[in-house]
């Protein structure tokens, strides 16, 4: 696949919930290796957009392409390339850490599953607790296991919905390192946040969503956290007026 093909391309995506329009025609192009910070105030449509990209929700209109191919043409195969993290852990509380990863690994047909699981559990420092039920884990441990679950199938596109919400400092640092590793490996990351104090040096693409539309779409080699604040204030304020 030539590098000129965007990794992810959104064509006029709309989503209505009854009479309420959450997305009003989102257009955006995301290149390979982009680490996209998707900003917007509450109700701007960030989570809706991410759910559509994760194929958890159907758009009312519009479509998107992954690697130049309509994502819904072979939805099951598209999902193989996507990792999704939200504030929910997506774990089964009455299974052990190991059983959870075995279950999800089998659903994703992860090759060399045993070794992958061992590596993932060591990465999130839960190897010694692998035979314990998730119900007995602290919130931070559950979040770390959730990270291991997301990265287990080696996705090429990582979607993160408010990923830092509720994370303890250890899990937060772990997530930073995983995103940086992801970027180094040439993969693509899209994360939503309303935290303008985002201190993630690998972010190279900022998108501001306002009232279901892309208000700003800017690429830079590097963003400082004050840049996010400026972009947000400039574009959200303009529209509010």
């Amino acid at each position: 696949m030539p590098d000129s093909t965007p990794h992810l391309e959104l064509f006029d995506i709309r989503k209505n919930f009854g009479l309420v329009a959450a997305l009003n025609g989102v257009r955006c192009s995301i290149a390979h290796r982009d680490v996209v910070a998707l900003f917007g105030r509450n109700g701007a449509g960030k989570t809706t957009l991410l759910k559509i990209l994760a194929l958890l929700m159907r758009p009312t209109d519009g479509h998107f392409q992954l690697e130049g191919v309509d994502a819904r043409r072979d939805a099951a195969d598209t999902r193989r390339h996507i990792g999704f993290i939200s504030h929910a852990t997506y774990l089964y509380s009455d299974l052990t850490a190991l059983e959870n990863l075995k279950f999800f690994g089998a659903l994703y047909d992860v090759p060399h599953l045993e070794e992958r699981i061992a590596q993932s559990l060591r990465d999130v420092q839960l190897w010694d607790r692998r035979h314990e039920r998730v119900r007995g884990f602290s919130r931070g441990m559950q979040q770390r296991l959730s990270l291991a679950r997301t990265f287990l199938h080696d996705p090429s596109l990582l979607l993160l919905d408010e990923p830092y919400t509720g994370l303890d400092p250890i899990a937060s640092g772990m997530l930073d390192r995983l995103i940086e590793r992801f970027h180094r490996e040439g993969r693509t990351v899209v994360l939503t946040t309303h935290n303008l104090d985002l201190r993630l040096p690998v972010v190279n693409h900022a998108v501001v969503l306002e009232k279901g539309l892309v208000a700003c779409d800017e690429r830079r080699s590097r963003f400082a956290s004050k840049d996010f604040e400026e972009l947000f204030k400039e574009h959200v304020k303009e529209r509010a007026e």
Partner: peptide
């Protein structure tokens, strides 16, 4: 609980 049905929906299976 933990919205695990969404995890099943994210998996590359029919």
């Amino acid at each position: 609980e933990n919205m695990s049905m969404q995890a099943l929906m994210l998996a590359p299976i029919d």
